[in-house]
Amino acid sequence: MSKKTYDLTDKAIRRYALHLREQERAPATVQKYVQDLTALWDWLAGRPLTKAALIEWKESLSASRAPATVNSMLAAVNGFFRFMGWKGIAVKLLKIQKALFCDERRELTRAEYARLVSAAQKVGNERLSLVMQTICATGIRVSELRFITVEAVTTGRAEICNKGKRRTVFLPGRLRRLLRKYLQKQKKTAGAVFTTRTGRPLDRSNIWRDMKALCESADVEPSKVFPHNLRHLFARTYYSLEKDLSRLADILGHSSVNTTRIYTVESGGVHQRQLERMELIIT
C-alpha cells in the first residue's frame, strides 16, 4: 500500500467548493461535499492523509452509518481527490446488494398522503397543502418549487433548470385551478407561487418542519414524512400506470434509469399481494 501523504487543508476544501459552484452544482450538493470533506479533516485531527488513514476512516464510517451514507461520503472525497490531482488515494465504495423491495416503514402510501393534505387544510395551512400536492402531482424536487411561478400556472407548464439540465414539467388542470385561487387570495401576479412572508422562495427546511408537524394529526409515521417521499409517490404511481421507465426518468430529470428504478421499487407487501393474485397453488 502506498505510503504517500497528502495535506488536506481548509483552504483546499474552500477551493473545491468554489470549483463546484463554478460547475453550477446545486447549493445543497456543494454544502454536503464540504461537510463530508470537513468530517474527514476533523477525523484526521492534524494527521497526514494517507491511503491507510482513508481506509481506516472508511471502516469507522461503516461501523456507525448506513452503507448508502458511507458511499455518498466516499464519493465526495474521491471527487475532491480528482480535483486535486491526487492519484492512488481514492478508495472503493462499499458493495451494496440491490434491494428487491423498499422499506414499508418509509414508504408513503396514497392514503397517508391524502391524510397529510387533509391535516394541513384542517389547521389552515393552505400553502403547505398546495406545496405537497404540487410536488406529488408533478414529481418535481422540493428544490424545484421556485420554478412553479405565476407564469407556469398560466401556461400550464414550468421550465425547470436544475443540475445543468432543462426540462418541461406540466401542471395538471386541477392543480392549476387550485393554484389560481391561491394566487388570487395572495394577490400575486408574478414570481414564485410559494414564498415566505418576506417574499423569498420556500426552502427544504421550511417544508420539512411543517410536514413533520402534521404527523400526529394525520396518523402517519414521522419516518415517512419528508418532501422527497412525495416525489417517490409520484414515481410509483406513474410507473404503475405507464410502465415506461425511460419516460419516467425524463419526467423526473434523472440522467440514468438506474436512479429511476430506485423510485419504482415496490414494498414486500405489494409483492405478496401479487403472488396471491397469481393463484398458482393447485392443491
Rank of each mutant, 00 (worst) to 15 (best):
H254D: 07
I281S: 13
R110H: 08
K98R: 14
I55M: 12
R261H: 06
I281A: 10
A119M: 03
R115V: 03
L128N: 06
T260P: 00
R247I: 05
V193D: 04
S255N: 15
R65G: 02
T5Y: 00
G199E: 05
T264W: 02
A152R: 13
L175Q: 03
S72N: 14
Q35Y: 15
T9G: 12
K3E: 11
P67F: 07
C161Y: 14
M73T: 13
H19E: 11
T109G: 12
R204F: 13
S60E: 14
L37W: 01
V30N: 11
K163E: 12
G88N: 04
Y6G: 03
H271C: 00
T260A: 09
N229F: 03
T168I: 14
L178I: 00
T168N: 11
R105C: 01
I282F: 11
R180S: 08
L178Q: 13
A26T: 07
A12R: 11
T29R: 10
R277Y: 14
R141A: 07
I207L: 09
N229D: 04
T134Y: 10
L100D: 11
G269H: 06
E144Q: 07
R231Y: 08
V169H: 12
S255Q: 14
N206K: 01
K92I: 06
L108P: 02
T264E: 04
P172C: 08
C102P: 00
